[in-house]
Design a protein around this nucleic acid. Structure first.
Length: 558
DNA sequence: TCGCATCGCGCG
DNA sequence: AAAGCGCGCGATGCGA
C-alpha cells in the first residue's frame, strides 16, 4: 500500500511498509543513501506502492538521476498545506511537519506560510539540515494524521483525489525540470540579433535599441533622456505636451504624438532584451534545454508557480526558439476556455453546459444570447469570473445573469462570502486563507472615509474569492489532466518510444515526442482530458475539449 | 553596496 | 486603477 521513505542519521535512508491507515505492516529497511534508488526500484517493480515522503523535491531528483521513476506518491508537505486550511476537514487537522516554503525545521508548523527560499538540493538525497527535521516515526504519525483527517471528512473522496493529484504534480514537476523544454539557443540568438542588433558588450544597449533611444530623444527634445527610467520619461513626455499619468503602454497609446510609436517600440524591444535576452539564454539554457523550477501549489489558488527564467511568462516573441529535436515533434495541448467550462460544471448550469457543447464556448454563448457577438460573450463571462463591475463587461452582466442564473449566482455567492470574511473552497477542497489583517482592520471603522475605504478592501477580497473557486478548480482539473496524461505517456514510452512532458502552463502542456509517437501523444492528451472531467465532475455533462497542435516549434501552436 | 518598494509588462 | 483575478522578474530609485 504505502512505502514511507525517511532520512536517517549517518547518511542512511529508512524504508517502512505501511497499510491503508498508515500503520506499519512489516519491518523497516535501512539502506545507505547511495543504495536508495536501487531499493526503490526493487520495491516499485514488486508491488508499485504509493511512496510517502516529506518533500518530493528532496527525494525524487536523485531517484530520477539514477533512472528510477515511480508511479505514485503522497507528498506529506503539500498534503499538509491543503488539509491544514481545507473547509472539508473537520475537526481541524494540525500539521506536525513543516509546510512547503518553510525550510526552517523550527518554524511554527501551523503558522503563516512564510515565503522562504526553497533550496531543493540536486546532488544528494537529503539536505544535511533535514537530519534535524522529522524522522521516520514522526513522518509515519503525520501520514496517519492526514489519512484520518481525510477519512473523517464528508468529502473524503474529493480530498483523496486532490492529494493524489497534487502529489502526482510534485512528481511531474521534478520530471519536467529534469527533462527541460528543448531550446535552440542559436535560433534565439538570431531572433534577438534581428530585432535588437548584434549582442553588445555587457551593460551596453544593442545597436537597434540604442538607435531607437536616439530617435526618441530627438522627437521629445530630451537629449539626455534614459527611456528606461519611468520618472525621466514622464517628465520628458509632459514637456512635450503628452499629459499621461503613467508611462504604461496601454495609456501612452491613447495619445497622439510623433514620439509615441517609437516609444512603444522601444519599450517592446527593451523588455525583450531585459526579460528574454542574451543574459536569459546564458542563465537558463544548458545543453539545449530550458530547465525552470516549478513550484507546485505555489499560488494560493493551487496553480503552480515557477522560479527562475520567468518560466510561465515566456513571451510569444521567443517561442520559435523552443524547437523539437530532429525526428521529433512538440505536441502542444491546450484546454479550450477551461475556466468558463469549470464554472459551468461547478454550478451545474445546464444551459451553460449546453452552450459549451462545441469546441468554442464563447461562440456557443454568443449564439444563444449576445446576438452572435463572440467578443461580447467573452468579455461578459470573464467579467463575471473576475468581478468586473464597470465598463462593458459590467453592462453585459444583467444579460448574462438572465441566460445563466446558476453560474452567475455561484460566483456572486463566492464574492459575498469573501466580502464577509468567510472561507470559500474549490471543488476538491482547497480553501482560501483566512482574511488578511487589512481585511480585519477594514471591519473596524469609525469615520465615513474609513468606512468607504473599508468597503473597498472588502470588495477586493470578494473579487479574490469569486475568482478563487474558478481558478482553483481549473487548477485541479489541470493537475488531474496532467497526472492522467503522465500515466498514458509512460505506457507509450514502454513501447520504446520517446514521449515526455516538457512544459506546463496552467491549462496547457507541451510533450516532446519522436515523430512516430506524436499522434499517440495527441490522443493521450485528449483521453486524459475526458478522464479529468469524469474524475472531477462525474455525471456532469460539461465537456473539456482541447486544442492540440503537432508542431516543430512552440510558436507554431495556435 | 545592499535591501526594499515601485513601476511596468510578460503569461494564463 | 485598464474593466476585473492570479503570478515572476528586471530596472530604477531611495534609504540605510
Amino acid at each position: 500500500m504505502y512505502e514511507l521513505v525517511a532520512p536517517a542519521p549517518g547518511g542512511a535512508a529508512l524504508i517502512r511498509r505501511l497499510g491503508r491507515t498508515g500503520r506499519p505492516t512489516g519491518d523497516t529497511e535501512c539502506v545507505a543513501q547511495a543504495e536508495l534508488p536501487e531499493a526503490v526500484r526493487r520495491i516499485e517493480q514488486r508491488h508499485g506502492p504509493r511512496w510517502v515522503w516529506e518533500r518530493t523535491a528532496e527525494v525524487y531528483p536523485a531517484l530520477l538521476t539514477a533512472g528510477v521513476e515511480v508511479d505514485r506518491c503522497h507528498d506529506l508537505s503539500l498534503s499538509a498545506a491543503i488539509l491544514a486550511s481545507s473547509a472539508f476537514v473537520s475537526p481541524a487537522y494540525t500539521p506536525r511537519i513543516g509546510l512547503p516554503g518553510s525550510t526552517d525545521p523550527d518554524a511554527e508548523p501551523a503558522g503563516v506560510l512564510a515565503p522562504g527560499p526553497l533550496s531543493p538540493f540536486q546532488g544528494t538525497l537529503f539536505e544535511p539540515a533535514a537530519a534535524r527535521g522529522p524522522g521516520i516515526d514522526e513522518l509515519e504519525d503525520e501520514l496517519q494524521s492526514q489519512l484520518a483527517a481525510v477519512a473523517r471528512s464528508p468529502a473524503a473522496s474529493r480530498l483523496r483525489l486532490l492529494l493524489a493529484a497534487e502529489s502526482a504534480g510534485a512528481l511531474i514537476a521534478i520530471e519536467m525540470q529534469q527533462a527541460g523544454m528543448p531550446w535552440d539557443a542559436a535560433v534565439h540568438d538570431a531572433l534577438l540579433t534581428a530585432r535588437l542588433g548584434p549582442r553588445p558588450s555587457p551593460g551596453a544597449r544593442p545597436a537597434l535599441l540604442e538607435a531607437k533611444a536616439g530617435e526618441l530623444r530627438t522627437l521629445l527634445g530630451a537629449p539626455r533622456l534614459n527611456p528606461d527610467s519611468p520618472r525621466e520619461l514622464m517628465q520628458a513626455l509632459h514637456r512635450a505636451g503628452v499629459e499621461a499619468r503613467t508611462t504604461r503602454a496601454w495609456e501612452l497609446r491613447q495619445f497622439r504624438h510623433p514620439a509615441i510609436t517609437p516609444l512603444l517600440e522601444y519599450k517592446k524591444m527593451a523588455r525583450l532584451l531585459s526579460a528574454n535576452g542574451w543574459a536569459w539564454i546564458d542563465a537558463w539554457v544548458r545543453d539545449g534545454r530550458f530547465r525552470p523550477e516549478y513550484v507546485v501549489g505555489g499560488v494560493v489558488t493551487g496553480r503552480w508557480a515557477s522560479r527562475g527564467g520567468g518560466a510561465l511568462q515566456i513571451p510569444a516573441e521567443v517561442r520559435s526558439a523552443a524547437r523539437a529535436l530532429p525526428g521529433h515533434r512538440l505536441v502542444v495541448a491546450d484546454a479550450a476556455q477551461l475556466e468558463p467550462r469549470v464554472l459551468a460544471a461547478l454550478a451545474g448550469d445546464g444551459a451553460m453546459a449546453e452552450a459549451a457543447r462545441g469546441q468554442d464556448l464563447y461562440a456557443g454563448i454568443a449564439a444563444s444570447g449576445f446576438g452572435g457577438d463572440r467578443t461580447q460573450a467573452k468579455v461578459a463571462l470573464l467579467g463575471a469570473i473576475y468581478g468586473a463591475t464597470t465598463g462593458e463587461s459590467g453592462r453585459l452582466m444583467p444579460q448574462l445573469t438572465r441566460m445563466y442564473p446558476r453560474a452567475v449566482a455561484l460566483v456572486e455567492q463566492a464574492a459575498r462570502d469573501g466580502e464577509r470574511g468567510l472561507t470559500v473552497t474549490t471543488h476538491l477542497g482547497r480553501s482560501t486563507p483566512a482574511p488578511s489583517a487589512r481585511w480585519r482592520a477594514s471591519q473596524r471603522t469609525t469615520t465615513a472615509e474609513e468606512q468607504r475605504r473599508g468597503d473597498a478592501v472588502a470588495r477586493d477580497r470578494g473579487r479574490f474569492t469569486r475568482n478563487f473557486i474558478v481558478q482553483g478548480t481549473a487548477a485541479e482539473w489541470a493537475e488531474c489532466w496532467m497526472a492522467d496524461l503522465r500515466g498514458r505517456l509512460r505506457r507509450i514510452r514502454r513501447q520504446g518510444l520517446t514521449a515526455e512532458l516538457v512544459y506546463f502552463l496552467h491549462d496547457e502542456v507541451v510533450i516532446h515526442a519522436e515523430e512516430a509517437a506524436a499522434e499517440a501523444c495527441a490522443a493521450a492528451a485528449r483521453e486524459a482530458a475526458r478522464a479529468a472531467g469524469r474524475l472531477l465532475f462525474p455525471g456532469v455533462p460539461v465537456e473539456f475539449p482541447l486544442t492540440v497542435a503537432v508542431v516543430r516549434s512552440y510558436d507554431q501552436a495556435k
